[in-house]
Structure formats: structure tokens, C-alpha cells
Design a protein around this nucleic acid. Sequence first.
RNA 1: GGGGCUGUAGUUAAGUUGGUUAUAACGCCGGCCUGUCACGUCGGAGGGCGCGGGUUCAAGUCCCGUCGGCCCCGCCA
Length: 592
Amino acid sequence: MGDWRRSHDCGALTASDVGSEVCLMGWAQFRRDHGGLIFIDLRDRGGLTQVVFCPEGSQAELERAHVLRTEYVLAVKGRVRARPEGMANPSMPTGEIEVEVKEFKLLNTAATPPFPIEDRIDASEMLRLKYRYLDLRRPKLAANFILRNKAVQSIRRYLDQLGFLEVETPVLTKSTPEGARDFLVPSRVNNGSFYALPQSPQLFKQLLMMAGFDRYYQVVKCFRDEDLRADRQPEFTQVDIEMSFVDEEQVMGMAETMVKTMFREAAGVMLPEVFPRMPFAEAIRDYGLDKPDIRFGLKLVDVTSIVKNSGFQVFAKAELVKGIRVPGGAALSRKEIDDFTEFVKIYGAKGLAWIKIKEDEWQSPFAKFLSDEEKKGLTEAFGLEVGDIVFFQAGASDMVNNALGYLRLQLGERFELIPEGSFAPVWITDFPLLEYDPEAKRWAARHHPFTSPQPGQLGTLESAPGDALARAYDLVLNGSEIGGGSIRIHDRETQRAMFAVLGIDAKEAEDKFGFLLRALEYGAPPHGGIAFGLDRLIMILAGAKSIRDVIAFPKTQKALCLMTEAPGEVSTNQLRELGIKLRTRDKDKEQS
RNA sequence: GGGGCUGUAGUUAAGUUGGUUAUAACGCCGGCCUGUCACGUCGGAGGGCGCGGGUUCAAGUCCCGUCGGCCCCGCCA
């Protein structure tokens, strides 16, 4: 570059800069070579500016510029000029001007990229991930990271103003028995022992409260070795927060304002002044899921009592029978209904019952089994009108709620009931403290084992564990869980009772959580907190379909990084130092 | 662990019931071009169909296995 210095970025120049001498540096996006005149759209993170190589600028540079190709890296010096009459490009922010090149430097050449660097991309994601650094040059993708930066800055500013202390917690820590599968790191100094990467800094942030830090936060990587999804990566970022001397209201209030502030500052999006709240039981009742998308209706209706003596055995025998009324749904084709039937089978449904409400009859494979009284009951329960379709699911409660809950989302999409660009946050409260694990035949913490029961629930905890409610709360946005937290247990006795219900005996508790139990004896303050999934939050804010679009270097569904080809094998020397012997490698030797 | 979709020039795709030399567009290379903006125009090169087996006179096309990619169930306190 010599002594050349960039004077502007490629999105900065406007008509008011006409006449000024500038220096731009960036990548050649498009080249339009007219022989005696060459246009190049120069691109950097800031945008795109048309630079013109022409005789008026410099005949010598024009002749030199014919070798330029896409993605070559250039520095140009020249004069900003207004484009000639009628030549402005209204679709470009810098479309009124162009830079007449007087001198340029070729900073680097570039091989032809494997896919074009432009927003209307059609390259496969496999290829894009292999060349992630090229994909990230695309303005649309880069915009997600600019947004992400704004969001994080906003959150930090907000929490800092409230006196929160950002503290780092260990990445090499201890494996904990509950929760997701841990990523393990072998210890060289202590062969046979392993660190675990944190699934979240949960215990550390509680210990920071016991340390008297009062208000803590951290933007922190967390690791869970579970299968991936469109919205799940093995390493992801949490905005982790903990506060002392607070109750639910204070944590939720603080978090709500944080999210509102961030949406406004980062994206200009105004969220509702007050987020609605919904008890867990109501969410399941009306939406079938604990993360309801409340941007549209189609609530589930429980009709178990109406059909409990029905001649239709599928209904009569079921633990729970629920339905969804879709106004105008009678127009659905048989094929579409079959597709929905296949869809609910994913969630363990055996089939999907339906009734089309026609002018003169109920069209349905099972309407003939329904008595007039049952029909009347259903008509009232759903508020049925001609042209509706009702879908039913009958069977075990969990299956019915889950299948219909997800069917509702499908129907919302099919009937275009979800308003574009809308954001609907909702707090889910009053979660059950525990849930039964039928495989392990024991109760497990729904949130985590340090979540405090609601007042007066300690008795319930022993008599009817499933009914005990937790001081826990989730924040759901557009049907996606973006944050969750709780008021924690801060006395040793409650913590012991909790471990007892979970089947963790004193010895195991001491082994796994001794450090926490000990800390609880030294004056632990009442405390609670919340953690947000930052990637998911940004994904929703950016309107991205995948969490990969807001993570700079994401992994594929098989948890591979196509760019670095991680994970990879390591040398036997490295393994020996760690005291590790591979079973598969031995097996290969035996076979060969 | 399971279900669905998918892999063909650099890229995105088409490719009949197996049948000459595997199509197209974009990109790339070369020529021409002073107002383009996904510039235009003329010409050219480029793959043997993810990989390995098999069936067949003959395989992108059928079969088996295997490796990837995407979505989902399980899993994710």
C-alpha cells in the first residue's frame, strides 16, 4: 500500500462529496470493461462504490486496468464526480456518484472464486462452508454480524449502566452429571482425568453471588455435545446473568428491558412495552408447547369430556382429545390433509382425525360415529362455522399436545397467519420443578437441580413431585425459546431435599457438588438469574433461517467444520502424553 | 439410534422405459466495444456423473455398500 491510506469506506460517498479527492480500498465486485472505459464496483464492508477507469482520469491507468478481475484487491485514488445526467443508479446507496480513477494499486490478485460473491447466492451450503471467508464477504451475511455486534454492544452498555460486573469463568471445568452430554478435555498433567467444557457457567455464576459480586454477567461460549439442528450448534453463546437479593419480578423486569433496549438500539424494532406472561399449564393447554408462537391464533381446544362416551372408540378411549379449528380449512385437498397426517406421525401420532364443516353435512371419515349431542358439544366448543376444518388428536396427553402443537405451527404457515416482520415475546412462568424420566424411572430437574421450588412447595415435593412448581421462567419469542432462568436455592437444606428427590444421595452430592454445598453454608445470599441464547436471538432478529447464518464459523449437522476439517486425528505422541489409547484404532489394526 | 430430501463441468440445474460423442445457463479464457451497473457482442476451453463394488452386450439411470450436505424425531437440565 506504500503510504496510501484509505479515506472512506465504499459505502460512505454521496453527492455532497463531489469534487473531493478520495482513496478507496476493497475488492472488485463486478467488472464492466467497455474497452475505452472500465467500470468496477469496489466492495468493502461498508458497501459498494462504482469506480471508473477512463482517459479523463488517467489513460495509462485505464490501459493497465484491463487485467483486473473479480475479487482482485485494489486501492484507487481519484476524484468523486456526479454521474452524468440519467446515469445515476437509484438502487445503489452510492448510485449518484462515481470515482474517476487517477491512480490505482493492485494490492492482490485472486483466483476465480468457487462461487460468485453476491447476495442472490445459489451455491450449496457445503461449498459456502468450505470457503466460509468468501461467503462472509457477501453483504447480506456480513450484515448479520454487524447486527450481532450492535446487539452485543447494546446489551453490554445496558448491563454496565446497571452496575453489572462482567466476570470470566473457566472453560476447563468439571463434568456434571445432569443435563447435556459434556465435551471432555483430557488432562496431560493428570492422566486419566478429564475436564469438561461448560454447558453453561451455572454453578460459577452462583458462586460469584456467594462471593458477593452481586450483579454478574458474561457473554460466554457454552458447549453441549448433542445432535445439531437448524437452531442448535455444539458451541454457542449465552448472555449469562445473575443477581443477588432479587426475586423473579426483578430478574424478569431487568431482562425484559434489556431485550427491548437491544431490539431498539440494534435494529430499530419496538417490542411491546410489557411482555405478556403465561403459566406453563396455560401454554400447554392452548398451544400444546412450552414455547408458544403467539403471533397467531388457532388455539387448541380440549374436547375430552365431550367425546368421552363417543361411539368413536379412538376418542372414547383416549386420555386426552384435543382439536384445532381452522377457519376456511374445508378447502384443503385430500392430499394436503394426508400430508398433515404424515406430519403428525413424526410426533408419535397414529393418524389425524378431521371434520370438514360443509353447508349441509359434516364431511369426515368418522362423523358417522358422533351423536347429535356430541356434534352440538363440538360446535359450541370450537364455535364452528361452515367452511371450517377441525383436526383432532387423541391419545396420551404428551403426544396429543406435542403433535397438535407442531401441527398448529404448520397450519399457521400454510394459511399464512404469521404476520411478516412481527415479534411476539411472551414469558412462560410456573414451570413444574421436576419431570419424570420414564427410562431412568426417576424424577429429573426440568430446569436444573439448583432451581428453587415456589414457596410452600417443599411438602408437595415429597408427596406429589410432579405437581411442585418452580421459581423458573422462560422468555419465548416467535415460538422459539430465547432465554430462561430461575431463582436459585440458597440454603443447604432445600438443596439437600432437592437432591434427595432427584435420587442423588449424600455421597454423590458431595462428590459432584460438594463445593456448592459448602458455599451454601457460608452465607449465600438469595439470588437468581437468567441466560439468553444470543445466537438464536440474533437469528430471529436478522430473520435468518439457520443459526449458522449468525455464527462466523459454524459446524455442519455432523458437527464438522468443512473449512478447517475439524475434528481431526492427532498423533500417537499426543495421545500417549494424555494417557489415551484409542479403541477404534486398535480394532483397525486387528482387522488389517 | 431412526425418518425424509439430496450429491451430474468452476457453479446452479436438466438428463425419458438402461442405448450413439452427457445438455443448458452463469462463470472462466481470448477478440471487439466510451456510460455500464447481473454491460453487450463474437469465438473457445472445460466434466464422465460423490466414492467402491455388482447386475447387464450396454449404467447418471437398476442393486448393494460407503462418505458428505440439508430438514426432522430421539437427544438438547
